[in-house]
């Protein structure tokens, strides 16, 4: 726990460091060493240009000190994690359940709607960064992506297949009972 907190603190610091790098270095000499370290990592990061994967170029760099240069993305990542945790039936899709913008997304929604469960949906077409975060989270290339009770179930092919085999009924059983 304590370690978690300190990790979070360090992350917070790392972020603020990047935000106001030189000014902070002057004002707070204690952080200077860390700052130098952090800016060094930033350089190697820059060299990797538009790489979307986590920066691992510097083997000496502990991941806590990697200012991944995508503060907003990592917070989106948190949102994805939170979404998954808080919504028993969650679909990341193209468009909205009432107005899907892709046949596969429409199919997945249709299947889920058979079970009378409340479905949480997010449109990934309206937020490219969210789209990339979800893809990175699941390591799954396509949409829709369906999560049930915090677990990634798959895309439309899988959800349809599970529906046909009766597996989805079992999986959604207690979610449906709880109503919500």
């Amino acid at each position: 726990m304590a370690r978690l907190v300190s990790t979070a603190l360090v992350r917070g610091i790392a972020r603020s460091c990047r935000a106001s790098s030189t000014a902070a270095a002057m004002a707070q000499p204690t952080f200077q060493q860390f700052m130098a370290y952090s800016s060094q990592v930033d350089d190697s990061n820059a060299n990797m240009a538009s790489s979307t994967t986590r920066v691992t170029a510097d083997p000496d760099t502990h991941q806590d000190f990697q200012p991944t240069s995508k503060g907003s993305d990592s917070s989106l990542h948190d949102i994805v994690a939170q979404d998954i945790k808080e919504n028993p039936v969650l679909i990341y899709m193209k468009g909205y359940p009432d107005a899907p913008r892709c046949g596969f997304s429409a199919l997945a929604v249709k299947v889920l709607q058979q079970y009378g469960v409340s479905i949480s949906a997010r449109d990934i077409l309206s937020n490219m960064k969210l789209k990339e975060s979800v893809k990175a989270h699941t390591n799954w290339p396509t949409f829709p992506q369906i999560f049930i009770k915090g677990e990634f179930v798959g895309g439309s092919d899988i959800i349809l297949n599970m529906h046909q085999k009766g597996e989805l009924k079992d999986l959604l059983g207690d979610v449906a009972q709880k109503g919500e």
């Binding site: 596969f104 799954w140 290339p141 990634f152 798959g154 092919d157 899988i158 599970m162």
Partner: peptide
Amino acid sequence: LLERHRLVNTALAPHMAEIHAVSIK
């Protein structure tokens, strides 16, 4: 099934950028 689809997705990964939709029947 999820793992099976992952195997197929992985195999197609180099092409996925140019493929819009893959349906694994």
